[in-house]
């Protein structure tokens, strides 16, 4: 029997249709790390400018080590998911104002080194024991003058970091919402939603690193506010799908009544937002709650949220 290969059975082209899902787990991880870094940088810079770095040392000093690591890992993940990675430098031969990815590439190029400089200026203050062991400043004399320079310019760096962190946070969402061919992503709320989610995971990370009660309390309050905003934005997003066109209605089914419902409502909305919000509220009223629990839930929820959006979004398309 001769088996005939037919192209005529709809779009059933083995090497093309599966490979249209071209964004894999590194993208989701990167979007999470980018948001986390943006959140920590934003709060750190803001509190520094307000002159309260000694009152809230975790936000400004201790947590400052996370953004450079997160951004470096995120960049590695991004490059890992490129299929033509040796040409990555082509991103920096042009700036394309209409392409969110171009914005992201340039913002990362500026923010990543700045985040390194920012945490370096606190290195000797936060890790005196490590420095006593490594003796970096004794061995490399130029570090002394460089540190002096960074400490002198902290305020300037902080002023630069605030808009950069906001652009970084919002871009992780706009990156997705710019694709009108993926109806699940194509809504204007995604940018603000990813920004708020990033800020919220940033605040949660600061809670984890914080040692003083006042700081935990403050960031618990901030996180609670951000979670409420995030829940409102998610409601808006779902409402937008409901009021949308056929392709958006179909896209919404994935989240509301489909393969991603458990992940989205169970792990993101309930475990990642509502439960930590209730726990933080109980804590604020005065009961004793280990703040590690809501903080970890928020961070995990943020990560799962990125995975859900990346995976589900690529299943939605225009059907004609």
């Amino acid at each position: 029997m001769i088996q005939e290969e037919l192209f005529t059975s709809g779009r059933n082209i083995p090497n093309i249709d599966p490979s249209l899902e071209i964004w894999h787990w590194p993208i989701a991880v990167y979007l999470f790390l980018g948001g986390l870094a943006a959140g920590i940088l934003f709060f750190g810079a803001l509190i520094y400018i307000l002159g309260k770095e000694d009152q809230y040392p975790a936000a400004v000093k201790t947590a400052s080590i996370i953004p450079p690591i997160a951004l470096s890992l995120g960049l590695l993940a991004l490059v890992y998911d490129l299929t033509h990675p040796l040409y990555t430098w082509q991103l920096y031969t042009t700036f394309r104002i209409e392409s969110p990815m171009s914005w992201g590439a340039w913002v990362l190029l500026i923010t990543t080194p700045l985040s390194f400089i920012w945490t370096f200026s606190y290195y000797r203050e936060v890790y005196p024991k490590l420095e006593a062991k490594l003796k970096m400043f004794k061995r490399f004399n130029f570090l002394n003058s460089f540190e002096k320079f960074t400490i002198k310019n902290r305020k300037n760096i902080a002023y630069a970091l605030i808009p950069l962190a906001l652009i970084l946070g919002v871009y992780t969402g706009i990156l997705l919402s710019a694709f009108n061919a993926r109806p699940l992503w194509n809504n204007a709320i995604l940018g603000p939603l990813f920004l708020v989610s990033g800020l919220s995971t940033g605040a949660a990370a600061i809670i984890l690193l914080s040692k003083t009660k006042a700081e935990k309390h403050l960031f618990g309050k901030i996180d609670l506010g951000l979670i409420i905003i995030e829940l409102a934005l998610i409601t808006h997003m779902i409402m937008g799908y409901y009021a949308g066109s056929q392709v958006q209605l179909e896209a919404m089914q994935l989240l509301v009544n489909g393969d991603f419902t458990l992940m989205f409502f169970g792990f993101v909305v309930i475990l990642g937002l509502i439960v930590p919000a209730i726990l933080e509220l109980i804590e604020l009223i005065g009961f004793k709650v280990p703040v590690v629990v809501p903080a970890l839930l928020v961070i995990l929820g943020g990560l799962i949220f990125r995975f859900v959006m990346i995976e589900a979004g690529q299943l939605t398309r225009f059907l004609y």
């Binding site: 964004w23 490129l82 299929t83 040409y87 991103l91 061919a181 225009f318």
Partner: peptide, 19 residues
């Protein structure tokens, strides 16, 4: 000039592009 980021593949409503 293509880095293989896949943004164009995601953006195409006709799924006309491939890596």
């Amino acid at each position: 000039e293509c880095i293989g980021c896949g943004a164009c593949i995601e953006s195409c409503p006709y799924d006309a592009r491939y890596q």
